[in-house]
Nucleic acid binder design. Structure first.
Lengths: 162, 162
DNA sequence: CAATAATTGTTATTCGACATAACAATTATC
DNA sequence: GATAATTGTTATGTCGAATAACAATTATTG
């Protein structure tokens, strides 16, 4: 059980594990580490579909909000319009979405998913749902819901800082 | 201050706001958005101390684990040794830590915080604790603890994915 | 209506986080 | 003692994110 501490405390210099204890008390530290783990596994989940996290998210939003503009999508994704261009380029060159002329504003593009885009997204969504079930398996049904609710509370309560 | 919000929002073109509903069901999406909000506020909290998130974390770990090597610290921070060099440079040039010769291995450095480093870290820790209390205020005492526990469960359960 | 301002998508550039490759000095291994 | 492995380091490339500038178009306003 309690493996006796061999010599004395200063075993950091050699092989002992590095102590986290101060940082583990912070929610931000735990959020970063948990998100890193999730992100790595999610990237592996999406890679067979030729999607990255950003392109997957953008594709889902375009499907759920047909004909939205790049400015609107950039706002929803919390990225700059200039950075969204390459994301849209990626999805368009993959044949998953199209840039259509807006009937009301000749400056803006009305983004719409192609049939191939909707089909690929449906398959990717299944994979991501399976990935999430594996992820949250240790929390139980209501534990996962509680985590999501808590995260939304933190996000909402910390929104006016900017 | 009852100025209408209409103009300040990204103007939803024709429809209303952009719908999140599909993505909101995923824990990963909520984690990313919540962490982004936390990260932004934390950066503002640490900025008066001349610390970034990475240097703050490294400083805390050096204080909690005196005489650890850069390879050990890189492992704890989950960054490459090559990227840790600039972080250590930053902290050393700020007079917060020192690179000392290891008594047992002339290749490695035994990192140690200076008195100024420990004092600055103590003040920064107080600020970060206040930041976290503001952050998690909407969750209640045990709600915050439950969030941290859930995040650790997710991190642990998703560790062997590589 | 005309002149000016604001918006949209875009390019170029910069910055920071992150990974890889190579290297000298040192240590470990055979 | 020759060879391999490790430590810190530099250089380089990728990727996400931020800013500035620009042409085309729309909105505002005098």
């Amino acid at each position: 059980m309690a493996k006796a501490i061999r010599k004395s405390l200063p075993e950091a210099g050699q092989g002992g594990p590095v102590s986290d204890r101060t940082l583990r008390g912070f929610a931000g530290y735990n959020m970063k580490r948990a998100f890193n783990a999730v992100q790595a596994d999610l990237a592996r989940t999406l890679e067979p579909f030729g999607l990255r996290m950003m392109t997957f998210t953008a594709l889902v939003l375009v499907i759920d909000n047909p004909d939205l503009s790049q400015t609107q999508l950039a706002g929803a994704l919390a990225v700059e319009r200039s950075n969204l261009v390459v994301i849209i380029d990626d999805l368009e060159q993959a044949g998953l979405i199209t840039r259509n002329p807006s009937p009301t504003d000749r400056r803006s593009h009305a983004l719409r998913a192609t049939l191939a885009g909707r089909r690929l997204c449906e398959r990717a969504l299944q994979a991501v749902r399976a990935h999430e079930e594996k992820l949250l398996g240790g929390l139980g049904e209501n534990g996962a819901a509680a985590l999501i609710a808590a995260l939304q509370t933190v996000e909402q309560g910390n929104r006016g800082g900017e």
